[in-house]
């Protein structure tokens, strides 16, 4: 796969480290255990469009939100994870 790093340009996926789904909100410190369970463990895991966190570990070391189709691997966008 090739991932278009917004800072470095398109690079092979071996330069990146994958974490998992993006867009999960870390619960407040006093949130209920269910909220933490959801955040740490439960995933939509869609077959289709998926927003996910990749770090350009062998490049700029920025965390990116990459939107990709998990069926075709087509990449729709890649933006820095810091808004």
């Amino acid at each position: 796969m090739r991932i278009p790093c917004p800072h470095c340009g398109e690079r092979g996926n071996d330069e990146f480290f994958y974490l998992g789904a993006a867009g999960l909100t870390r619960p407040a410190a006093d949130a209920q255990p269910e909220a933490w369970h959801d955040y740490v463990y439960l995933r939509d895991n869609p077959a289709g469009k998926h927003s996910e966190l990749w770090q350009h570990a062998h490049g700029c070391r920025r965390w990116l939100v990459v939107t990709r189709d998990t069926r075709t691997h087509a990449v729709f966008s890649a933006v820095d994870a810091t808004p």
Binding site: F17, L19, R26, L53, Q55, A57, R61, R62, W63, D80, A81, T82, P83
Partner: peptide, 13 residues
Amino acid sequence: LQHMEFVHQVLRP
């Protein structure tokens, strides 16, 4: 290091 980068860039930018 990677964890710290995640925490800073994603959780506490």
